[in-house]
Design a binder for these strands. Structure first.
Lengths: 331, 331
DNA sequence: CTGTTAGCGCATTCAA
DNA sequence: TTGAATGCGCTAACAG
């Protein structure tokens, strides 16, 4: 392990001069600089980032803490990465598996200290646990749960999106619309907010809200969505629309409908939420609510950068507007 | 920033005693331990991981360096994460955007030192650049490019997979099969290996290999695959099968075929490669080559763990076997 | 322009 | 069982 001291010895200078050459801090005489660079090259020296971090108190690294690496969060992360890099920092992803303890661990003082800033996509933690997090580290929360006021937070217009999608299917003739992936539970989560929008669309259209049409999906997994729709079909409950709380859930519905011989959108209209890239390509094209990944990423990173720059104003709670993108799965 | 020294002062003991309590290293008397724990609690002390890393020379962290966070790599990462965590370490993801310079930077001595081990999915680096990487850090390469012998490496049976998929479509009656996402280039990459399998299936069936049926796809993106297939249709080149080099590419083909009014599999059979979760759910179900994510992850992590445990034997080059998973997109 | 001193927070080594 | 000294590798502040 070659250190600065080795380089200094090789170049016949002091350690500080090596440091100054590497960091362009204080001016260094040209011949000295050349000797140092030659020594660095000869020894293959590279800085020890851990030591630099300890000394500097900064890591020039931002963490994005996600429930899982794939699907939605992977797409968002790919949007966030270039924005972080544009500011000269690194982005790393950590995974919590949507487990509250792991999310809490990621927000521990110890782990936070490894980063200059953290973006957390909260999936498992409730407001009280979050409120107990004590740190001055710049943090921005991203996600659909309620969070304590003092955190910067970016969420989507969940209820409005669900209302848009559902109203669109009602306008196009659907009358019995399943809320796939929604929940009977109370509280404020992605699933409750989107159920509320589904309900509101019904009320605004003067239609009854039938609780039997709320069909939960374990873990919002495509496979479970698929199975749930087949179960509904088998149960005989009549339906002519599916409002899926996410595109991944919608894909499961589309597959199940195809297997059951039901045509989309002629027999059953389907809408999703997230507007994943694949929504364009899964036949007949998935009508979806566009959450504007790029805008969400930009808003989130802006808030974080502001905090990292020392901004101490009150926390912001941004609700990202959404829009309906109509494709072949609705009429 | 509360440090061990603060805790020591509060508890009226030395810094070393605090360290011993925290790390369970040397035995500490029960009353002393209680005082220390009380002080830790009172002050809200948490260890400074950066300092620990510098002192210990280990970080208990493994990095998985990927071209991008979404799709295939996100799915693989989700498989790798629990295996790393089972060994008591953290996994973090870093992204290179498939750019050679960024991959090289990720393999620099400086960045490597932040981790106890690194898994790299090489996309942009050629063999020579990799050969120049000088480090004793445990590294396992994951991916379809050729790599220098001295690196542990896990790759898929690309040619065999492509041969299986193509031969399957030939056996089911296809005679003009597009190699979508393949390349005319030479060298050894994912695209050339899979093209070779496509060619071999033709030769083994006594069919001509027509170079016009090699259709590259920019960045293996679904959108570009979609556009490329529409271009082929517009060109009038007749075809009755599509061997897509990845599932993402295959999804683009399926969408394009649907738009053009061609039926899958009746008019055109389609196969993919990767067997993504969604291959089950994109109607009519995508026949694909199963790369065994879980097995690939297990193999890769095994190699890495062995290196991290100090194994210094010769590098292993594992070719992960593949199998054909038949679904509705082929007859 | 270059070198010396000091210390970031922790844990290994040795002494008490 | 506990404490003191020491240094991991680097850089801020100051001295020369």
């Amino acid at each position: 392990m070659v250190t600065m001291a080795d380089v200094a010895r090789e170049a016949g200078v002091s350690v500080m001069t090596v440091s100054n050459v590497i960091n362009d801090r204080l001016p260094v005489g040209e011949p000295t600089r050349a000797r140092v660079l030659a020594a660095i090259d000869a020894l293959g020296y590279e800085v020890n980032l851990t030591a630099r971090h300890l000394r500097a108190g900064r890591t020039e690294t931002v963490a994005f803490v996600v429930p899982g690496f794939h699907d939605y969060f992977g797409e968002v992360a790919d949007q966030i990465a270039p924005l972080i890099e544009a500011a000269g920092r690194h982005l790393v992803l950590e995974r919590t598996n949507a487990v509250a303890e792991q999310e809490l661990a990621a927000l521990s003082v110890a782990r936070l200290r490894l980063y200059d800033g953290v973006i957390v996509s909260v999936a498992g933690l409730d407001t009280e646990s979050l409120a107990a997090v004590r740190t001055a580290k710049p943090i921005v929360l991203l996600g659909e749960r309620d969070v304590p006021d003092r955190f910067d937070h970016v969420r989507l217009a969940n209820e409005e999106g669900a209302r848009l999608a559902t109203a669109h299917m009602i306008a196009r003739g659907s009358r019995r619309i399943i809320a796939l992936g929604a929940t009977h539970e109370v509280g404020r989560t992605m699933a409750t907010d989107r159920r509320a929008g589904w309900e509101r669309a019904h009320r605004e259209a003067g239609l009854d809200v039938d609780q039997r049409y709320i069909v939960p999906v374990t873990g919002y997994a495509t496979r479970h969505a698929h199975d749930a729709v087949l179960d509904v079909i088998a149960s005989g409950l009549p339906f002519d629309g599916v409002f899926a709380v996410s595109d991944a859930v919608a894909f499961g519905a589309i597959a199940a409908l195809a297997e059951a011989g039901l045509r989309v959108p002629d027999d059953v209209q389907v809408t999703g939420f997230d507007n994943l890239d694949l929504a364009n390509f899964v036949p007949p094209g998935l009508t979806s609510i566009d959450a504007g990944h790029a805008e969400v990423a930009a808003t989130t990173v802006d808030l974080l950068h502001r905090r990292m720059a020392g901004w101490t104003g009150p926390a912001e709670h941004v609700v990202q507007p959404v829009r309906l993108v109509v494709r072949g799965s609705t009429r």
